[in-house]
Write a protein that binds this DNA or RNA. Structure first.
Length: 277
DNA sequence: GATAATGTTCGATC
DNA sequence: AGATCGAACATTAT
């Protein structure tokens, strides 16, 4: 489920609630979630403190006081939840981190696609969860994005979701960004000029910042670690709105759904035709 | 019961 | 070699 804004919302919430927390015990209920040996994973974490909370693309980076880094990728349905004392554990609790202060941090994941990986500082560059990622979508500059787009023949929306090009965008935000640009999702990526790419970069940053401000997007089951739904759902202009009226001021169009790269794609056939900066 | 779901990865093919 | 496509992964909600 989560894309960059949802992972950033998780990061900020964990930083607030668990900075400096001690990991008393780690219980791996589902070994599939953890890369490598579960017993080793639990043993290496026990007794460490969380000291910093980072993120790259959709990957959360929880840093420990011995330099090791716990990487977490939620994939489709993974999430961290902070469970207060005496509260019942959530459904699909796959890995449980028992902290001091009577706090429990749970990695819950219905579909079991999520992954946790513990790496040493030296191992960080080759970490499976980070290895293939391009620059973070919040940091990428137009020039770099332009050069990456030039090399690709695929539809622009497919390129935006390619984590090697830039890390963090998924199906929701790629669609929303293209609608704000007024471009059709099928535009071949390499047709963008540098000025087009400047406009695109600006919208990528604007949409992501707006989504972070509102706590991300909840479609089916995303919740922040404190259990809050995301507010960006009210800001969606195309995603999940097939058959509904286009929300661009003055546009009489209706949102259409098509399949691109195997994923549902939503766009307005009337106002996503233009292709000029 | 069929369909779709906020994502990545692998193997086959171009 | 590198890009691209479709299937696979696992499980539920509608």
């Amino acid at each position: 489920m989560p894309e960059l804004p949802e992972v950033e919302t998780m990061r900020a919430a964990l930083e607030k609630a668990a900075a400096g927390a001690l990991l008393r015990r780690v219980e791996v209920r589902d070994g599939k979630i953890v890369l490598g040996r579960s017993d080793e994973f639990a043993r290496r974490l026990r007794g460490k403190h969380f000291v910093a909370f980072g993120r790259h693309g959709k990957v959360l980076q929880l840093k420990l006081d011995n330099g090791d880094i716990l990487l977490a990728h939620p994939r489709m349905t993974g999430k961290f939840l902070l469970v207060p004392p005496r509260h019942k554990l959530p459904d699909y609790a796959r890995v449980i981190f028992y902290l001091d202060r009577e706090l429990r941090l749970v990695f819950a994941d219905l579909r079991r696609f999520g992954r946790l990986e513990l790496v040493s500082p030296e191992g960080l560059p080759e970490a499976q969860l980070l290895r293939q990622l391009g620059p973070d979508a919040l940091d990428i500059e137009s020039r770099q994005l332009y050069e990456g787009l030039q090399k690709r023949r695929v539809a622009l929306k497919v390129a935006l979701m390619d984590q090697k090009l830039l890390a963090g965008l998924g199906n929701i935000y790629a669609a929303e960004i293209l609608h704000r640009c007024g471009w059709h999702p099928c535009v071949p990526a390499h047709e963008l000029t540098l000025p087009h790419t400047r406009q695109l970069t600006k919208q990528i940053h604007a949409v992501l910042h707006e989504a972070i401000q509102t706590g991300g997007t909840t479609i089916a089951d995303y919740l922040s670690p404190e259990g809050h739904a995301g507010g960006f759902r009210e800001h969606l202009r195309v995603y999940g709105r097939a058959g509904e009226k286009c929300l661009r001021r003055g546009c009489p169009g209706f949102i259409q759904r098509m399949v691109l790269g195997g994923r549902s794609t939503f766009y307005c056939p009337l106002c996503q035709k233009q292709f000029a900066p």
